[in-house]
Amino acid sequence: MSAARIDEATLRRSVMVASPLAVLLAWQVLSAARVFPPEVLVSPQAVLAAFGQLTASGELARHLGESLQRLLWGFSIGSGAGLLFGLAAALSPTFARLFDPLFQALRQVPVLAFIPLLILLFGIDEVFKIVIIAKAAFFPTALSTLDGVRGVPKAWFEVARIYRTPLPSLVWRVLIPATVPAVLSGVRLSLTRAWLVLVAAELIVADSGIGQMMEMGRQMFRLDVVMVGVVVCGVIGFALDRGFVLLQARLLRWRAQPAGAAA
């Protein structure tokens, strides 16, 4: 009986890898059939070889390290500022009125549209990249914090009043736990956005990082290197998101969860 259950779990896990495998197979078939010139549609084997090379030379690790460091800074600053902004806007109507139009307008401008201006202001150094990642990470967290804090039911404040809860306990034991679910889903979105924008920014201007590695590969017509970048971007982004979901499940384990969903 337990064996049957394990089989079911393995089955479910194998379904999860089915779609990546199908893409890999299609890629292999297409490149073997020479539908496109091999220099354009490089074969999976060539990509794997390039991956081996880049790993052995330490080049990939260096680029990835640079990128992740930028991500960490930009994401921390951006979502941290978003958290503070969301809190302030939720708690102070004056603050909300003051900044809402600017906030809404800036939110609608694609991050990449700021690149020319930011290059003029900050050059193409680290500051520029961190600013642009922070901008991308800021808005989802700010919005979800704002909604999360505003959405705390009045009913819970009444319970706190009945027991004459002091302010610090009200904040730590009621307000924060009540808003954590909403905030976390915003932070998750921030993390994804930050990673996407980081790679895009590095593609445009950078002297290092995973995006720059891909851009150099393109310029030198090394599409195997470009493809290594594509796959690494996908895997890292996926891993970041998965990791965050696990953290979320851990922090919110008090919530009703479908059986077996908790990791």
């Binding site: 009913a155 027991y163 809860t165 002091p166 009540a178 008090w254």
Partner: peptide, 23 residues
Amino acid sequence: VFQDHRLFPWMTLEQNVAFALIR
């Protein structure tokens, strides 16, 4: 006691009851 129980979902039963003793 409210019509809806108004227990805090992030606290265990024990923590919810103990919350009333916060003062």
